[in-house]
Nucleic acid binder design. Structure first.
Lengths: 306, 306
DNA sequence: TATGTTAATGCCGAAAAAGTATCAAAGGTG
DNA sequence: CACCTTTGATACTTTTTCGGCATTAACATA
């Protein structure tokens, strides 16, 4: 995150942000045609750009097993990094513009990726409207990184699925949401509106993230045990999007926060879980000794939002 | 770092990795003509690409004042982020390829940015030649992040300018190098081969990094105090490259590790410092309980390299 | 005022990307 | 098994972007 010489050894200039966006679209749809529609381009153009990207990287990113597309191991590794790069690019542009226009203050928000599906986008937008001159930055991290960033004062608030318990921190519950099961449309369960976890004991589970443990995947395993079974873990993915993509092609089912339903995905059905207390809570966490007035303003936005 | 939805709100598709590379070249040279030569393109093409980038970001990145080019505040903010994005892109491609080819193991190296000028590139290259199937990843961090990453086992070894003292860590000095003063060619001192710090008491110092403190900047201040004066800090920059660029246009002088001399920069001269013990040491740090055989192999490379 | 330096502009050709049409391979169906 | 559907790849054309060269504009300096 600091300086690094530029000149040497950044060879394959054939990667490009556009191609990374295209790659992510295909990775998320696992379908060239639909990905092309989503990107607003024709399918042949997409096929070729992916081919160019694969050549630049020096490895196949997708297995085209006739009429089905899967991520290769390499593609799976690339997905979260590509998202990260695109996010950082957007953030870099934002913060550069803010700095150029003479930002009055800065306010840094850290969050777990899954928070982007629920309240976070609205909160950020509202705060930015109220404080256009403040350079609000966003940073996706896991729980361990969030805790460290709070301690180091690298961020002002964290949105996490735990309180990151620490005597120095204060926290507040922002959103309690139920978990839902995501199943392929081809599954017999897809007809139902809801299901009990116990009925999924024989199914293949796709869990995430693979690292770092303990993670959301362990919470899901815990709920299954409470329901009286150990889930069959067919696959572990690095992130939620990859898990959803695998569900959509019938590789198994996954358990996700209900807010994910907002991101419409082809080929999957969402089932309410009948089990009680199968929920996940999003917390806002901050340092008690943070006296920034922006923190108070931000908390006000969060509270009035609810 | 983790998942994040892609579809919405990543608007200005006009940024592009190529333009970021161009931007960095201009930022480092502070001169369109020389930057164009370095990039192997003509100057008008460069001017226009920078203009496109500025339009995409929505702010001027350079002040073109009287045939001198300066970074605006926005440009200064963008520099380290652009470097970070390019580095991450290269790393993403590397790790995806390694994963696709079935990496036998992974080995993560963290480092402070200034280490890229000395032994680190050679070590990495040598290790990769010896272990082509190992996915060696690189990550630039500051000291606080390095310590945390070691504790969290996010990296296997750290290269830092301190031992990151911790009972769990072992460390080894890799390189002790003198500091040198960097002055504009226009400075009267530029004629000399060396100088005593005390003779710089009246000069404007450009220090880095601005964050996080304590940092290398504080070390430099400490050396000056030992030499009997408090330096006049004309400017603090976010990174070494920006500091060097400011030196080259006459904004002041800076104190940097001697290995920086390898990156040839126009308009500056490097002066040895006569003062004794004005040095900086690069340490390799790792966890005592890390039993990875790759760690031992890496240490062997480091030792035989010396 | 003349001259030199340096970034911006105009214009044109080259390269990259996207569109349309079409093909080929795999799976499903009667 | 013939036939149809689905889906990604290929061929070819059009559009857009990028870069080069020549020139200009803005300063600075002699």
């Amino acid at each position: 995150m600091t300086e690094l010489r530029t000149e040497n050894s950044m060879q394959p200039t054939n990667i490009g942000l556009r191609r990374l966006r295209y790659f992510l679209a295909v990775a998320e749809e696992l379908h060239f045609g639909r990905a092309a529609v989503r990107l607003g381009i024709a399918q042949p153009a997409l096929s070729r750009q992916i081919a160019v990207l694969e050549a630049a990287i020096g490895a196949l990113l997708f297995n085209r097993v006739r009429s089905k597309v899967f991520l290769t191991k390499g593609g799976e590794v690339l997905v979260p990094q590509a998202r990260d790069i695109l996010l950082r690019t957007a953030e870099a542009a934002r913060s550069a513009r803010a700095a150029a226009q003479g930002a009055v203050g800065t306010f840094a928000v850290g969050f777990v990726g899954s928070a982007t599906y629920s309240v976070l986008p609205g909160l950020v937008q509202q705060f930015r409207e109220m404080h256009p001159a403040v350079d609000l930055t966003l940073n996706a991290m896991n729980n361990a990184e969030l805790r460290r960033a709070l301690i180091d004062r690298g961020i002002d608030v964290a949105f996490a699925r735990s309180r990151l318990d620490d005597g120095e921190f204060a926290s507040e519950s922002v959103l309690i949401e139920p978990l839902v099961a995501v199943v392929p449309l081809s599954s017999p369960h897809a007809q139902n509106m809801s299901i009990a976890l116990a009925n999924l004991a024989k199914e293949n589970f796709i869990l995430y993230p693979r690292h770092p443990r303990p993670s959301f995947a362990d919470d899901v395993i815990g709920f299954c045990r409470t329901a009286g079974f150990n889930p069959i873990v067919a696959q572990e993915t690095m992130d939620l999007q990859t898990a959803m993509a695998l569900v959509s092609v019938g590789a198994g089912l996954s358990i996700v926060p209900a807010s994910i339903k907002q991101s419409h995905r082809h080929g999957v059905a969402y089932l309410r879980l009948d089990d009680a207390d199968v929920t996940t809570t999003l917390f806002m966490v901050w340092r008690r000794d943070n006296r920034s007035p922006l923190l108070n303003n931000f908390r006000t936005v969060v509270r009035t939002r609810k």
